[in-house]
Simulated scan of single mutants.
Amino acid sequence: MILTAAGIDVVAEAEDGARALEAVRALRPDVVLMDIQMPVLDGLTAARRVLAAGDPPRVIMLTTFDLDRYVYAALAAGASGFLLKDVSPEHLAAAVRLVRTGDALLAPTITRRLVERFATREDASALHRDLSPLTGRELEVLRLLARGRTNAELAADLHLSEATVKTHVARILSKLDLRDRAQAIIVAYETGLITPGSP
Rank of each mutant, 00 (worst) to 15 (best):
A79G: 09
V59M: 06
A124S: 15
L98R: 14
A124V: 13
G43A: 10
L105Y: 13
V71W: 02
V99Q: 03
G102F: 04
F82Q: 04
S80H: 15
T63Q: 01
L106Y: 00
A23K: 12
K85Q: 01
L106C: 04
A73V: 11
K85S: 00
A74W: 00
R97F: 00
D103E: 15
A23V: 05
F82W: 06
R97W: 01
V96P: 02
V32P: 00
R100H: 04
A107L: 06
V59G: 02
Q37I: 12
R28M: 09
R49A: 10
V40A: 08
P29W: 03
A79M: 08
A26S: 14
A47L: 02
R100G: 02
E90F: 07
Y72A: 14
V40G: 03
R49K: 15
A124K: 05
R69V: 10
D30T: 12
L51W: 02
L75C: 12
G54C: 06
G78S: 06
L114H: 08
V96K: 10
V24S: 10
P89Q: 03
L41E: 06
Q37T: 12
V115T: 01
I36M: 12
V115A: 00
L27D: 05
P29I: 11
A79V: 08
L67I: 06
Q37H: 07
D30H: 15
L92T: 03
L114F: 10
L83E: 02
I60A: 10
F118A: 12
V50H: 11
L44N: 09
P89K: 06
F118M: 11
R121G: 15
L51E: 09
R100W: 00
T109K: 13
A94M: 11
T101W: 04
I36H: 07
F118E: 09
A104K: 04
V87S: 07
L62V: 07
L98M: 12
D68Y: 03
A77M: 01
V31K: 11
M34Q: 10
D55N: 15
S80L: 08
D55P: 06
G81M: 00
L41D: 02
E90A: 15
G43N: 09
A93Q: 01
D123A: 13
F65K: 07
V40S: 04
D55W: 04
R117F: 04
L41P: 05
A74T: 02
A124Q: 09
E122T: 11
T109A: 15
K85A: 00
V87F: 09
M61H: 06
D103L: 15
A79K: 09
V24R: 11
I60C: 07
T64W: 00
A107K: 07
T63I: 03
A79I: 10
P108F: 12
L62I: 12
M61A: 14
T63E: 01
A94R: 14
R48Y: 04
T64A: 15
I36C: 11
P108A: 13
P39Y: 03
A107G: 02
A47N: 00
M34R: 07
A53Q: 14
M34C: 14
M34D: 03
T63A: 04
L27C: 08
L41C: 05
G102T: 10
R100T: 02
G43V: 13
I36G: 09
V32H: 02
V32T: 07
L41S: 05
R48M: 13
